[in-house]
């Protein structure tokens, strides 16, 4: 079921072209007019829970979850403590808590929040252990998880 309540709401209130199927390419040629929306679709994606591929993997994930629960509590505690300390020492200059935020050009107003002097590329945030869902094709790493899909990365 791809259509959800959001679609009904959307089509009633906005005069956009709506597709119920994932549309294929229909490029806008030129862009001379203030009509940026050439083709729009809105549909919901459902997460389908799936099982892990092997018993071994199930067990290892459960085990790692038990361990990581304690680690996370500890890590969270130390982050809170450290950030509280930093707030006292450097008021208003505490680093963002999410790794993703450290490199985003987060200033949405004003001139560039980009640090032009930064000559290194920021690494991606570590993928977290997720409770259920898709399984990795090999190994018993911590990245398997459930999901609705999926933007494409082709270019």
């Amino acid at each position: 079921m791809r259509l959800g309540p959001a679609l009904g709401w959307f089509s009633r209130n906005y005069n956009y072209e709506v597709e119920t199927q994932a549309p294929l390419q229909k490029h806008s040629v030129g862009s001379q007019q203030r009509t940026p929306i050439m083709y729009a679709s809105l549909f919901e994606q459902k997460v389908v829970p799936v099982k892990h591929s092997t018993k071994f993997r199930d067990e290892s994930v459960m085990k790692s979850k038990r361990i990581s629960k304690f680690l996370w509590v500890g890590a969270l505690g130390s982050v809170v403590v450290v950030s509280g300390l930093a707030e006292k020492v450097y008021p208003g200059k505490v680093a963002p808590s999410s790794p993703a935020q450290t490199t985003n050009s987060a200033s949405t107003t004003g001139t560039s929040g980009y640090n032009v002097t930064s000559s290194t590329l920021a690494p991606p945030p570590a993928s977290a252990t997720a409770p259920s869902g898709l399984s990795a094709t090999s190994g018993s790493s911590s990245s398997g998880s459930a999901a609705a899909a999926a933007p494409t990365a082709g270019s």
């Binding site: 294929l24 898709l134 998880s145 609705a148 999926a150 990365a153 082709g154 270019s155």
Partner: peptide, 18 residues
Amino acid sequence: GQEVPWMVNLTSDGSLDP
């Protein structure tokens, strides 16, 4: 963070067709 990650399909033909 710990939630369900974003799923991305790296298409073999390079298209944006999911």
